[in-house]
Simulated assay, not measured.
Amino acid sequence: MKRRPISCFLIVRNEADRIEACLQGLAGWVDQLIILDSGSTDNTAQLCRQYTDEVYITDWPGYGPQRNRALAKCQHEWVLNLDADENITDDLKAEIDTVLSEPDLDANILRLPWQTYLFGKPLNHGRYSTAQGKLFLNKDGAQFKNSQVHEVLQIANPKARTLRHPLKHYSWRTYQHLQEKHLKYACILAQEKHARGKTGSLPYAALRFVTDFLQQYVLRGGFLDGKQGFFMAMVLGQYAFHKYAALAALQMQQDADNTPSRETSS
C-alpha cells in the first residue's frame, strides 16, 4: 500500500538561523508544507519560500489559535505539526512511511520520541524526553486547545502509537534564550490563570520550585543525564516559581489598585 499523504505545518517567527535544517528534512517528503510566519523581521519567510509556495504572513493570536489557523489549511487527513527547532531524521521518516503504509492502521495519533538537546547533549529523561503526538489524523473535529501557550491537541477517541526513532529537538540557542523562553511562558500562563480568577502566593511559588525540581531530577530520572539533567531540573524549578510568583504579583497589583488611597478616603 502507498504511504498515506501528509500535510505538514510550522508556525514561525525570526527563525532564519535554524529553520533550514528543519525544512531540508521535510521538502520532497511531505505532500504539503505550510508555513505561517507571524511577522518575522529577519529573512525567515524568504528562506521558507525556497522550500514551499505555501508561506503565509499573519498576525500573532497565540499558539493555539495560530496552530488551528494552519490546521485549517491542511489538505490531507494525516497532519505533521513541527516547530522550527525540530529536525526529522531519515530513520524517522522511513519509520513513518512504513506505519502510514499499513493497510489496517487503527491509530489516529503517532507519538514521536523527543530527543531534546541542552548545551550539546541530549536529555534522555524527564519532561523534555516525553514522546510527542506530532503526527495525527485530522478528522472528527481535531483541533488545538485555544490557549496562548502549551496548546494541547484535542482529538476524539485518541488511539496513540509511539514510534521508535527520535525527533531531534534543539529548543534553546543559549542560556539567555532558555531563560527568556521559560520566563515568557510562565508570565503568559500566570496571566491566563489570573483571568480565570486563580490566585497565587510567594510561599506557594517557593514550594513549587522545590517540588518541580525534585520531580524532574529525582522522580523522572533527570540525575541520569548528568550536568545537563541537573541544569534542566533547576530551570524547571525556576519555571514553576516564576509562574506562581507572576500570578502572586498580578494579585498584589490588583489588590493595590482596588484599595482606596488615603487621599481618596479622607
Rank of each mutant, 00 (worst) to 15 (best):
C8V: 05
C8L: 02
F9C: 01
I11E: 02
I11P: 07
D17V: 08
A21G: 08
W29Y: 11
V30E: 04
V30P: 02
G39Y: 13
D42P: 13
A45D: 09
R49Q: 11
T52E: 02
P61H: 06
G62S: 06
G62T: 05
Y63T: 14
P65I: 00
Q66M: 12
R67P: 09
R69L: 15
L71V: 09
K73P: 00
H76E: 06
E77R: 14
W78F: 04
D91A: 13
A94E: 14
D97C: 01
T98M: 11
T98E: 14
V99W: 05
L110V: 05
L110W: 04
L112A: 01
Q115P: 04
Q115K: 15
T116W: 01
Y117I: 00
F119R: 12
G120I: 08
K121R: 13
L123W: 06
R127D: 07
T130M: 10
A131T: 08
A131S: 11
N138F: 13
K139L: 14
D140E: 09
G141K: 07
F144I: 01
H150V: 13
V152H: 05
A160K: 09
T162K: 04
R173A: 10
Y175S: 07
H177C: 04
L178E: 15
C187I: 13
L189Y: 00
K198H: 14
S201H: 08
L202T: 13
Y204V: 08
R208E: 12
Y217V: 05
V218E: 11
R220V: 00
F230N: 01
A233V: 05
G237H: 03
G237N: 03
A246M: 05
L247D: 03
A249W: 14
L250Y: 14
Q251G: 15
M252E: 15
D255Y: 07
P260L: 06
S261I: 01
E263P: 05
S266D: 13
